[in-house]
Design a protein around this nucleic acid. Structure first.
Length: 227
DNA sequence: GCGACAG
DNA sequence: ATCTTGTCGC
């Protein structure tokens, strides 16, 4: 698919924050989302991923939203030149992730990101950034807590509790399987929170994480091992 | 001021 | 994120 990034890749945190503040106004509200295809995005690191200039592999795997079968996939290798800074996470993974997306034959109807969307210090996490850049509906599904406060949701699949930031629900803590740790769902671009949770559950019929994320994780990891 | 902090 | 042994469960 075609992607036009509306800004240069920053090399320092101040430059990155300025870009987030500029792009944050371009996030669009919920529209009607009934995806036929959904793409999962993920990035793997070689060696000490916490260091700068690490070798990375980014993957985009498109699944049929109904059958969860793989219909397309793309991987890109590169380096992450931006340091890992909580809140500026997008700038570390986006360059390679964009390359992976560009390698897809078809354009997915929805993108599922590994991280947060609006549940972010400046309300502009990775999922929002990917959404604004691609123009596609996006949601973020994170594995651990970042910002906001919440109560532990019930023990069953589907149980949820609001993720609050300054008294506003910026996301939801969602249990995708009975008795397993919940995931953190937040809206990225053009999708509502209720819809984001419904989609996340539909994409995770058997495991904790969405099938989209699991496929992208495996593909990016395998690519690093092969190069 | 100090600590916490998506991947 | 990645580095890692053994261990519990389907």
């Amino acid at each position: 698919m075609e992607i036009m990034v509306p800004h240069p890749w920053p090399s320092t945190p101040p430059e990155a924050e300025a870009i987030q503040n500029e792009l944050r106004g371009r996030v669009e509200p919920a529209g009607s989302v009934t995806p036929r295809t959904v793409a999962g995005l993920d990035v793997s690191y070689a060696g000490d991923g916490g260091g700068d200039r690490a070798r990375v592999a980014a993957a985009a795997v498109v699944l049929d939203a109904e059958t969860l079968e793989v219909v397309a996939e793309s991987v890109a290798v590169g380096t992450s030149d931006f340091p890992y800074v909580p809140g500026l996470f997008a700038f570390r993974e986006l360059p390679t992730l964009v390359e992976a997306l560009r390698g897809l034959d078809a354009t997915p109807d929805l993108l599922v990101c590994d991280g947060y969307g609006l549940a972010h210090p400046r309300r502009f996490g990775l999922a929002c950034h990917v959404g604004v850049i691609t123009g596609l509906p996006t949601i973020g599904v994170a594995k651990t807590a970042f910002v906001g406060t919440y109560e532990q949701p019930g023990p069953k699949r589907g149980d949820r509790s609001p993720l609050l930031l300054d008294g506003v629900e910026v996301g939801r803590v969602l249990r995708t399987q009975d008795g397993v740790k919940p995931v953190f769902v937040s809206v990225g671009h053009r999708v509502g929170l209720d819809e984001a949770c419904r989609l996340t559950l539909a994409l995770a019929p058997r495991f904790r994480l969405p099938e989209t994320t699991r496929r992208a994780d495996r593909l990016s990891r395998d690519r690093l091992a092969t190069v």
